[in-house]
């Protein structure tokens, strides 16, 4: 049995559920932010801060940021395990895939810290 050490939850079924739950959250967040941009006539710095600075939006943004990390990790892991295989990239596939996963992890780490610093600056 293959041990899926680099999947998010080490369980295909759990990853499947997490991918869909986070997709649901991210769709709701997208509609919410889109609704704000579409409904504001004169968008300026004050309106932006007033919207994203409310406690409700700060927590919603935090939830969306965390969902993005989980969703992107599962998605990028899936792509990596599908295409970075010995049949595609040769015998060093495991090393290449590990490096790819490390880059993804680093990017997501930067993203979450960056997002949280933007969200909670007020």
């Amino acid at each position: 049995m293959v041990t899926q050490v680099l999947s998010l939850t080490r369980s295909g079924l759990a990853d499947f559920v997490v991918q869909r739950a986070t997709a649901f959250i991210l769709t709701a967040y997208t509609l919410c932010v889109l609704g704000f941009f579409l409904s504001s006539d004169n968008l300026d710095h004050g309106a932006l801060v007033a919207f994203f600075g409310t406690t409700t939006m700060q927590w919603f943004s935090t939830l969306a940021a965390l969902s993005t990390v989980a969703h992107a990790w599962i998605g990028m892991w899936t792509i990596g395990t599908d295409y970075l295989r010995p049949a595609h990239v040769g015998g060093g596939a495991t090393v290449i895939r590990f490096a790819y996963q490390a880059v993804c992890l680093l990017a997501l780490f930067v993203y979450i810290l960056w997002a949280l610093s933007i969200i909670w600056q007020f």
Partner: peptide, 9 residues
């Protein structure tokens, strides 16, 4: 999905 992953930056 990959475009969005990069686009988040």
């Amino acid at each position: 999905g990959v475009v969005l992953f990069v686009g988040v930056a």
